[in-house]
Nucleic acid binder design. Structure first.
Lengths: 156, 156
DNA sequence: TTCGTTTTGGAACGTTTATTCCATTTCACA
DNA sequence: TGTGAAATGGAATAAACGTTCCAAAACGAA
């Protein structure tokens, strides 16, 4: 890490607290990035396609550690209430961002009025989780991109 | 486990081999269960809905360890080539089962001829991964069931 | 019952992990 | 330039872990 063991303990107390801090920071950045991406005035469909493609490309190349959130959800959340709380809060935030962007798109007529933005948002989040796992285990970019396209067909 | 440490080592050699064996057995059973479920002559849509609901119900209640495969994909696959190979093979099998069942449904006119069964199969598999992660971290059955319904709308 | 094979409980070993102690060095700034 | 705070390297500790050793017990077939 570029710092000594001791400095780490002095600053964070113990490993668990360091982990928690790192995860919080990661999540805050992820939300920021997502918010910024969703502000793009292009059609939702296109914005979301880019979002998925970027996520896939960013996590597939090299020895990527995968999505910190998903890793935490699987490895930590079941045993650690704090991590679980962070995961739940993050999921809600992501879903809310998606939902509000989808609502806006709906008002602009980009997607049918019959769709439920909240349900779609939840679905998109779930698709992200699945994609993150597949990335971590397989790392096959092409089929993941194809899969994202398939999922986004639910928008029309 | 109900057996002594020593018996375990005598039988499997080391922890890694035991893990591998357990995973193999788990995957074989999962495939069996899936194949049996897909033989159900009811409409695909209904069969798949039941499949998801069952998976959600089965893994949410109590202190379930979650889906062994997904846990392995996240925790083991990135560091262990053997586990990765099992994961890839399993994914292909599951996708193949879904694809053939979807093709059959297509021939029966249950789903549009314009759909691509292989792409849909992959998509369903991805949805399962996402659902498994969400189960493990959140355990909120209702929203997961709702989400499965949403995903299955891609069939029509 | 006997004998060879399994199974078992428990001690023992070496390694890794999380953490602390401590003496020394580095650094910011007065 | 000196001083107090922060950072560092390295030894030290205690617990957990994966694994092996061993002697005793249980078991199954002859």
């Amino acid at each position: 890490l570029g710092v000594s063991r001791q400095s780490l303990y002095d600053t964070y107390g113990d490993k668990q607290a360091l982990y928690q801090s790192a995860l919080k920071r990661y999540l805050a950045r992820a939300i920021d990035g997502l918010r910024r991406k969703l502000e793009d005035p292009a059609p939702v469909r296109q914005v979301l396609t880019e979002l998925f493609d970027r996520m896939i490309a960013g996590n597939c190349e090299g020895q990527s550690p995968g999505c910190f959130m998903v890793n935490s959800m699987v490895e930590q959340a079941p045993h650690d209430a704090d991590t679980r709380a962070l995961a739940v809060a993050h999921a809600r935030e992501v879903e809310a961002l998606f939902a509000s962007r989808l609502s806006a798109a709906q008002r602009k007529g980009e997607i049918a009025a019959s769709k439920d933005p909240v349900a779609l948002a939840r679905f998109l989040y779930n698709t992200i989780l699945g994609t993150a796992v597949a990335i971590r285990a397989f790392g096959d970019q092409d089929s993941l991109r194809q899969n994202a396209r398939m999922a986004l067909q639910l928008l029309d």
